[in-house]
Computed example of a mutant assay.
Amino acid sequence: MDLSLWLPLIGIPIVVLGFALRFNPLMVVTLAGLATGLAVGMDGFSLLETFGEKFMNSRQLASALLILPVIALLERYGLKQAAQSWVAQIRGATTGRILMLYFVVREVSAALGLLSLGGQAQTVRPLLAPMAEAAASNQYGDLPGPIRDRIAAHAAACDNVALFFGEDIFIAFGAVLLMTAFLKENGIHGVEPLMIGLWAIPTALCALIIHLFRLSRLDARIARDMHAWRLAQSSLAASAKAEAVA
């Protein structure tokens, strides 16, 4: 077996091992890139040139980091409380309905190329999760930790699933262009971005139907969990009272 054919893959075990050992992701990826470059015979200058070129081509990714301090300031000055108070004024607002509406808007906007319209940092944490939690609080009062965690998890899943399946419909999305280029490089012609986008529509519709069905059951799940939690609290209170009397 010619080991030289396997050397370019040395970066894969480095990434897997580094993530498994919980090392710094940036350090792990950088080390994997350096090891792969050296394995294929690149010199130090070529490696630095390649790293610099790729960084310059994707430097817009760093702009996402600027969102974090802005969101932190908004949260400090009452963004979460404002979102919760606004939901409290809407009659008929439930956790499931709010998340269903967001899912539809997020998937449609992603299909149109508006990928930054939502997001975990800028939308889910400061707005969507507090609004969904406030809708449940309006119905049941103070929520226990497990139920708040469940609502937050569903809010995060809404953004992830809607974005994942919606963005493939947008023909200028990077992954669509990458698939088209990969197929052409391997001799498969006649597959255009428009075709890939059209074939992504059935999958996005299936994801929409399945996830909306899951969210339609969320309100009932919250009601059952709250009922069970209140029964448990009543049982504990009765047991404590009985012990105090005894």
Score class of each variant (00 low, 15 high):
D2Y: 02
L3V: 10
S4W: 08
L5A: 11
G11S: 04
P13Y: 02
V16L: 13
L17M: 05
A20P: 00
R22I: 06
N24H: 13
P25I: 12
V28E: 02
V28Y: 02
V29D: 03
G33I: 06
L38C: 08
A39G: 11
M42N: 07
M42L: 14
D43T: 02
F45S: 14
F45T: 14
L48E: 07
E49R: 14
T50C: 08
F51R: 04
Q60S: 11
I67R: 07
L68T: 12
I71P: 03
L73V: 15
R76S: 11
R76T: 10
R76C: 05
K80S: 02
A83C: 13
S85N: 09
S85T: 05
R91T: 08
G92Q: 10
I98K: 03
L99H: 03
L99A: 00
L99Y: 03
L99T: 01
M100K: 08
M100R: 07
L101Y: 03
R106Q: 12
V108K: 00
V108R: 00
S109H: 06
A110R: 04
L115K: 05
S116D: 14
G119H: 04
G119V: 09
Q120M: 12
A121M: 11
T123P: 02
V124F: 00
A132K: 04
A135D: 05
A136F: 07
S137F: 06
L143P: 01
I147G: 01
I147C: 01
I147V: 13
D149S: 12
R150T: 15
I151G: 07
A153K: 09
A155W: 00
N160R: 01
G166Y: 11
F170W: 13
I171S: 06
G174Y: 09
V176C: 04
A181V: 13
E192Q: 13
G197S: 11
W199E: 09
L205S: 06
C206A: 13
A207H: 02
A207Y: 04
I209Q: 05
L212M: 11
A220F: 08
A220D: 09
R221T: 13
R224V: 09
M226N: 03
M226H: 02
W229S: 10
Q233K: 15
L236C: 04
S239D: 09
A240W: 11
A240R: 15
A240G: 05
K241W: 07
V245T: 10
